[in-house]
């Protein structure tokens, strides 16, 4: 049995904006720490994506080029790979090179 309860009904066009206004008013739109984390995340994604835009590279190669720690590079590669922004290439030695999609 499904657990969804019937709510149904038509929604007005900008219901979400209205809701967001209300929630932002009570809770604020993200703490400074969240916003900083998000900014830093975007920065790393961009650095990595730029490094592999034209040529597939392995994690150590991307790390060397961007100056980001290997572990962070790999985590972001995993994330971008899952959401179809990066693809694997044929393995070189012990490492998989990644390329921007």
């Amino acid at each position: 049995m499904s657990e969804g309860e019937q709510q149904g009904g038509e929604r007005k066009g900008n219901y979400a904006l209205e809701q967001l206004k209300q929630v932002r008013a009570t809770r604020g739109a993200g703490t400074p720490a969240q916003i900083e984390r998000s900014r830093r995340g975007k920065e790393m994604q961009n650095l990595i994506l730029r490094a592999i835009a034209d040529e597939a590279k392995t994690v150590p190669e991307i790390s060397a080029e961007t100056g980001l720690p290997e572990q962070d590079v790999f985590w972001w590669i995993t994330a971008l790979r899952k959401y179809n922004r990066v693809q694997d290439e044929k393995k070189r030695g012990d490492f998989v090179p990644y390329r921007k999609k």
Binding site: Q19, Q22, R24, A29
Partner: peptide, 29 residues
Amino acid sequence: PQYPVLDAENCLLCGACAKVCPTQCINFL
């Protein structure tokens, strides 16, 4: 079930999800 969950702790309340949802099912309240 195959439903998404919104992580309220980490949501930035940007509304990007609500904009693309074809059935307008996101409910921040």
